[in-house]
Nucleic acid binder design. Structure first.
Lengths: 200, 200, 200, 200
DNA sequence: TATGAATGAGGGTTCATTCAT
DNA sequence: GATGAATGAACCCTCATTCAT
């Protein structure tokens, strides 16, 4: 009777820590952000933080998983019967500007880390496999409806699509003279032309 | 005059250090690779290393610049008269497999770093501006020859092209069931369809 | 509420560190004493020491302030109605020998440091201003009582007096054949003759 | 025949190094000034510098000796027949302002160092013994002429005089509101009153 | 729950010095 | 006489983590 809300409290504290960690990782990188920074950001003592996570590694992994789930969550909210493009580009179109993209920079931290950390690599692949399945299904539905080039292999095409969509956050880092809406329009156009059934 | 090959020796030592640093950065990340690791990799004492570079920061910056110059060097070796696709995809086609791409992983370190390190950001932008200029010129030549959709804005299209080409190293990190040649083929196809003059 | 004596413990640890640092600084100089020496002297790990002070600089500054406050603390314990000489020379007469003076050697570290470190300079001046105020008041009271030459400007005279009193620790460093009591007697005599109302 | 000016060249190089070292020591302290700083200041490689001095220690010692000899050199240029005060205060009166005194700050470095470095201690004592001898002779002459209180012991008084004169550089470090000429006047007055034959 | 004291290895960097040229 | 390459110990400081309270 004394403890009942505890499990929920526990979970909400974990979320607070993960959010604080995410901000620190954005500011300083996965390796550059220290536990003590995260503690400060979360308003928490190190002893207490270790009550919720067994190690920094665990925080990174959980954060990576949560981030990827949320990043690719847009695809899951569509039905197979919506127009193909609407679904495939939903992530990109849900963003409102470079600020949102800048926030995605953490993806590059994860890609860099995945190259040398097997756990992060596995998390990245598992998440990618998830949306690729959704994308492939969407593509198949599109092919059935005649909206998508039937010559494309759905599995391979889905991989390329994920890579292209995840590459969008590169643009503000690499260029200073390209505006967001124009970029979005071009990427959309590129994917549209890629998928569209080809004339003989 | 005692001097002989001294300046060349100095430069070649710098290159050795940069190569050792590059290997360490690939293995452990920009932040995770320590000076002492780089020293060990380069067979050199820390005091000596600091004879050649004033700080770790300087090593990272020099390495970043060198890497980007070399990465995008393929484009510079073409003339405007070659077929458009040959030039645009020369980087991708010059690679022989995932191993080469894996080696490009350092790009993600740089992208992550660029978000919080103004110097690296500037290096990245300066290099990107360089190849974008080349790509844009190639696109214009292609448009003049009727190989490229005249409706595309060369500056914007070049930005998207750079992002897509640099996104290629994501694939081996994100997937396990896609083979290199198939990926290359698909990306090539996508860009081809993107650029090709569109039927009415 | 788990808290008990925690804040006092914190302060007492700080004092321990400052005392250890003072000993190390005496033995090796402000620059020559290393953090690891201070840690060893204080029986403490470096990580822990930095829990109490943010930098070596901060330790030096705090030590300097504490030392000067204590060094000049003798003057504050007198009332204006005591004989002038008793007050002015109380610091000197409170010492029992060269050992006490040797302990004051740290003053020379501070004087040397003050020439190139603005913070230490400010600490030194602030402390000096403090006792000069007390000395000047004592001199004025002495002048009112007819014990001190009314022709002396109290502010200027106070500066000279501080310098002379603080110069006392020079003697054991510079000479080997002068004994403590004799020196004290001579300095006392000099100041006495300096202040005494002059015959026409 | 080939080498004849070499010894003089050698000596002049040593002087250049010592001058450069002196400037560095003033800026950064005896411990804070590094060999490489001194090399830069002297426009010289470390290997070359070690051709002239066997160690940093040796540079410090030589610099200390040279500095003290020059500092106290004023006394030696007087004859015993000049008025006592002229001789005793010649050092102080030869200075033209706080800048000259600021330059004397290195004395505090030496005093601090003397407390923990036997060699520097010995140099300091030897130099002090030297001028004390001169001062004592001057005092004796003054006593013979009736200008100096015959009750003062020349050896002890000379020690106090050296300390007082060497304390002068403290004033600009400790105060900000005392001007140079006034200070000089007061110190002169104090010493005058100290030495003057006392009325019955 | 929650704190912050405590560790000691390791971070990037500088040091005085030596030595081949 | 003169250079600067080379060393490795030591510099100040931060790290992830543990533990008593």
């Amino acid at each position: 009777m004394v403890r009942k809300v505890v499990p929920e409290q526990h979970e909400s504290k974990r979320q607070e820590i993960l959010a604080a960690a995410h901000r620190c990782f954005l500011r300083n990188g996965l390796q550059g952000a220290s536990i003590s920074m995260i503690c400060k950001e979360a308003g928490m003592s190190p002893g207490h933080l270790y009550h919720y996570f067994p190690s920094k590694e665990a925080i990174v992994e959980q954060m990576a998983d949560d981030y990827l789930v949320q990043l690719h969550g847009h695809f899951g909210r569509h039905t197979k019967d919506e127009p193909t493009a609407t679904v495939l580009l939903s992530e990109l179109w849900s963003m409102s500007g470079w600020d949102d993209l800048a926030h995605c920079r953490i993806l590059f931290e994860l890609l860099a880390e995945a190259g040398r950390n097997e756990k992060i690599h596995a998390i990245l692949q598992a998440n990618t496999d998830g949306i690729r399945q959704l994308l492939a299904d969407t593509l198949k539905a599109g092919q059935a409806r005649g909206e998508v080039d039937p010559g494309l292999d759905p599995r391979h095409a889905s991989a390329v699509l994920v890579a292209v969509l995840d590459a969008a956050p590169m643009l503000p880092l690499m260029t200073s003279d390209v505006d967001f809406d124009e970029s979005r329009k071009l990427i959309t156009m590129m994917i549209d032309r890629f998928l569209r059934p080809q004339p003989l």
